[in-house]
Nucleic acid binder design. Structure first.
Lengths: 383, 383
DNA sequence: GCATACTGTGCATACGTATAACCAGGCTAC
DNA sequence: GTAGCCTGGTTATACGTATGCACAGTATGC
């Protein structure tokens, strides 16, 4: 698809080497300047219009290339006069330092990756948004990485040098990625989901405790016919929330027979479908392992004319923004998303700042809280 | 609040450069940490541990470095035996080619940027998701760029060589960015929003026509007291949808007095607030310039116990996924998001493949369609 | 048997920036 | 006056990959 072109289209550019003709260089620079200005393409076989480099600025300002670099990076050893002259020249030429060259020289790219497999879940959108805010002050850019056709995030894409670090959000329990990254010394943090025996930094909410909160709330309200829609057992969130909810019911002696629970992928349609099925068990309450499942369920119940919470109580997990909308007012277990992201960011930055040093793994576990809204209440009297 | 569980660490790999003192590394790390914290722009990186390079592979396989490069890139001129040996050696060493080195040599990064200022709008989430799918086959990566504290996307971030091209989604009408990018010959496409006299590729929906559809529908249903919540006049979507809607009303002779229209930013809260205000005018129908505004309005009306569409009809614009949920069933003007994104992607890829060539600007305009759901109907009889 | 073509590989170098090392010149200290 | 020290730069080089080109070795043609 892309045209392959010899890259030596400008091999004759002899930028100020000793013995080279200064006049030729000047002519080339002038030619280039006008070409760039006009947006014309006088180099018909160039893959890209040659851009202004620090060498061009150096020549125009009458200094050496390293001086340009130092001036623009604020090296205090330069005289004010030189710095000013260089900066002005750079602006006049509309010079923008090449991130490519800088990356190679500094061995860092100024980019961090965030691995998300499920862009359809508003939870991760909020994570992206928060992360973006957290990174704003650090001059780091955010590269969103999503799995390829094989549903995996290629190891190579993370460690090929285009990233200084990464946040992994949708890791599955049996993923080999964290181990491989650790072994290579690549800075990363697991966010939201974790894996067992992870030799790496982790930032999660206490999913077990959170789900237990939900179970206790429903039991205390007097529900005995409780249904549950759990997430995939291949994820820590799915597994731990299920375990916590079951533990909460068990502690109260409330059963969870097979016809009253399901496991489903964490998405709207799955919640919609599974909720419809679970209604067969005649539950008075439904716990969903995350908000997007709960919203799917909410819509399914709404579509069937079932009133919430009068006929069925509904509790979710995550507290995405949607949960607080008037039409939903979803009772849910709240994760402090901004806090989680900022903790993860701090973990990541620390690890990036200590690349190569054997820092012990850190594990941050946030406490979830229950947000009482309007989708839960006592079971209907007749039940 | 934070429970920290130290787990044993096993990062004993000290393949630092020989003789380089650990103290120096510590100092660098500390410097970085404070620099990152302070947001300083000078010396903000740590030296990463040296990784395996093509030179290492070459030495191990008994060939030259260029041969490694050719072997791994599938150059047909190499003998099969050599190719196989190099590939096996590379795998054994867990070699991953450096994207940094490759970028510099090829003058391309394999990354495209998508500029989004409003990650809170599900519309752009869908755009991101679609774009990711569209890029999946191209081996291009997606870099999400959001405005900085000054609410602008720095020109430098786009043209510093870390991107091969970009898609601009939230461009404002008076933005100087497109002109600057065009002048520099940087490949990019405007998506969703455009600017006047743009000397660049554009992919938009016919906003004027779409809004006119909505106006006509309401008029034909018999509404005469129609309210409208428009978007910012600094955006083409805001301006054109407003003009289209006004034109539609005017054609039918239906007035739009000042107390029945507002302009608001394209977000949920603004829709929520403005809808409440507009109710004062006693409208029987409300048009919102996008779905997120409409959903804000929907929730506001729902919160005040106003029935939709029995008391007030509601029409949005965009047709985000949420609009189709059971609880909303929002009547809206549909943009074909996948089609739009794939058209934009095609425009961008074409331009990237012809960098430096003076291709004429192309403009793709998609036709919007009206999606009849359940938030609109005839005005209440008593009105 | 010699010119020619072809095949496979190495060599040299380019990409653009950052930084270590060095150096000229003016100044101070004694 | 000379050793030492700042000041303000320069030169040389590294970062890792891709590719033009040279070249050795082999096959081909006549």
């Amino acid at each position: 698809m892309f045209r392959k072109t010899p890259i030596t289209c400008f091999s004759e550019r002899d930028r100020g080497r000793p013995g080279s003709s200064k006049r030729a260089a000047d002519a080339a620079a002038k030619l280039l300047a006008s070409a760039v200005r006009a947006g014309s393409s006088c180099y018909t076989y160039a893959i890209a219009p040659r851009s202004i480099t620090s060498h061009d600025v150096a020549r125009a300002a009458g200094v050496s290339q390293p001086t340009v670099s130092r001036a623009l990076r604020g090296d205090p050893r330069l005289s004010e006069a030189t710095r000013k002259r260089v900066v002005e020249t750079a602006e006049a030429l509309q010079y923008v330092p090449s991130q490519r060259g800088r990356s190679l020289a500094t061995r860092s790219s100024g980019q961090v990756g965030i691995v998300v497999s499920d862009l359809g879940n508003p939870f991760y959108l909020q994570v992206l948004d928060e992360l973006h805010h957290a990174l704003r002050e650090t001059h780091l850019r955010m590269l969103v990485l999503t799995p390829d056709a094989q549903e995996t995030v290629p190891f190579e894409r993370l460690v090929d040098g285009s990233l200084d670090g990464a946040i992994l959000t949708t890791t599955v329990l049996d993923s080999k990625l964290p181990a491989a990254l650790s072994e290579r010394g690549f800075p990363f943090v697991l966010l939201n989901r974790e894996i067992d025996d992870a030799p790496c930094d982790v930032c999660v909410v206490d999913n077990h405790a959170g789900a237990k909160l939900a179970a206790r709330e429903l039991v205390e309200l007097g529900h005995t016919r409780i249904a549950a829609l759990f997430g995939p057992s291949t994820t820590s969130t799915g597994r731990d929330r299920e375990a916590g909810f079951r533990a909460g019911l068990e502690a109260a002696g409330v059963p969870l027979p097979d016809e009253r629970w399901r496991r489903a992928p964490f998405d709207f349609d799955a919640g919609h479908r599974a909720a419809t099925e679970l209604l067969g068990g005649g539950p008075t309450a439904l716990f969903c392992a995350n908000d997007i499942l709960a919203l799917g369920a909410f819509n399914a119940l709404h579509g069937r004319g079932i009133r919430i919470p009068e006929q069925v109580s509904l509790i979710g997990f995550d507290d995405v923004q949607l949960a607080g909308w008037d039409v939903f007012q979803l009772t849910t277990i709240s994760q402090d998303i901004p806090g989680m992201v900022s903790a993860a960011t701090e973990l990541l930055l620390t690890r990036m700042a200590n690349v190569g040093d054997p820092l012990p793994p850190r594990r941050v576990v946030l406490e979830p809280t229950m947000v009482h809204r309007r989708t839960h209440g006592p079971p209907p009297a007749k039940a």
